[in-house]
Design a protein around this nucleic acid. Structure first.
Lengths: 132, 132, 132, 132
DNA sequence: GTGGTCTAGACCACC
DNA sequence: GTGGTCTAGACCACA
């Protein structure tokens, strides 16, 4: 995991999000055992308690489950993971629209920009590799 | 300004972006005088040299100009500011598409999600107050 | 509140239950402001963090809500409180049946015992005050 | 034995109850020799005098008897043990009704809840395994 | 003053 | 070793 923490929101929340991302993107796969709290905490350079809070958050959503003595595991319920992905996508989209609004672009403008950018990229993909 | 710095990219770049955002959103308006380097640096809790580099960056794009004795000013060329806004919007859009791709959504999926979310918000605005 | 803590289950859980009981029984009424975390913690002779965890638990169920600077409040949604009461009653009942089973009484036996005890009490209530 | 002591009632009383429970549930069987006072006291982490008082209490009811030189024994009179069980069940029932009353449920309500919960459990037993 | 967050460090039960 | 809990003490934002 690439732990990127900014000081503007609770660390445990950011950790929870990044773990969730890790699960959704398949870095941690359904049924996988996660590293121990202490390991994850060391990785992210935070206090184990803080990491534990993040993990508890994910447990409360069912994405993780814990086996007292052997560690924490990613849920085997792949539909739950997919739903989490959809949820993150919706959040990402809302955030995008909000930022565009902050830049003075209406939702219609934003939609149009996405359309154009998507088309541009599609074209880029057709011809070899457009930028490199 | 709310200076939010993360450790994963050069600080001066992040500062430059946030200043640019401040100009585009009108927090600093065309023709305004900016606070001194020292002030800005103190605000953002960074070294004045770092802030200096960020400001130089913006000068090189023409958004800022220095007047030897009286400080730095936002350009009076509003079309330049608008163009900067469009540029940021394009970047934001590209970043959005990239993140959605990371979540496993194609550009078409992303476009569809934006359309839906925009519609949802539009509806929300029609009825009472969306936040309640 | 009469804080009664036993060492056999997490303290925060017991605190949460007793707070919940306080709300359900009307000791803390709908819309009331709770004492501060620190006060409650002192009352119950536990660490403020532990009390906070208990309160967070109740917040997650909607029974409490928090107003950043002015304290925590019992929900105004009385139906939510009533539902919590029903839930506690169901739990209490299940626990009762389990204990009776532990004593070697079937669920039918238990039901019969409750019927008899209820009748006995009803009678007691009719004649002045049966025991005193 | 799992000694669970709460600070709200005399310790010796709680010990006596739990010993009585042990006898009624068959953990200590008719005719069995009990561990020594010192052992029991150590197990429960209480002062031997306190444990002594609890044992005396049970002796006064006839459930235990002391044999000067060889220790304390559970009575061989199984009907006495059964009667103790019935007595505990009655107490448990009264306590249950009192708690339900505290939650705002009449004795009739409580009876109905027990009936429903018992039915629910019966059904659960018919189908697969209730705990899943 | 309020709640919220974070850290450091300890102890526990489980296997 | 694992996760879970608890404490003590600090700092922050908000008003």
């Amino acid at each position: 995991m690439n732990w990127d923490l900014s000081g503007d929101r609770p660390i445990w929340l950011q950790l929870a999000e990044q773990l969730r991302l890790g699960i959704v993107t398949g870095e941690y796969r359904a049924g996988d055992r996660l590293p121990s709290v202490r390991e994850l905490a060391a990785e992210a350079a935070v206090n184990p308690n803080t990491m534990q809070r993040a993990l508890s958050e994910l447990e409360s959503t069912g994405l993780l489950s814990t086996q007292r003595t052997s560690g924490r595991f990613v849920t085997r319920d792949e539909s739950l993971i997919r739903e989490a992905g959809r949820q993150m996508a919706r959040e990402e989209t809302a955030r995008f629209l909000a930022r565009m609004e902050g830049l003075g672009f209406s939702r219609g403008d934003a939609l149009e920009l996405v359309r154009r950018e998507a088309e541009r990229k599609d074209k880029e993909d057709q011809n070899g590799n457009g930028t490199e």
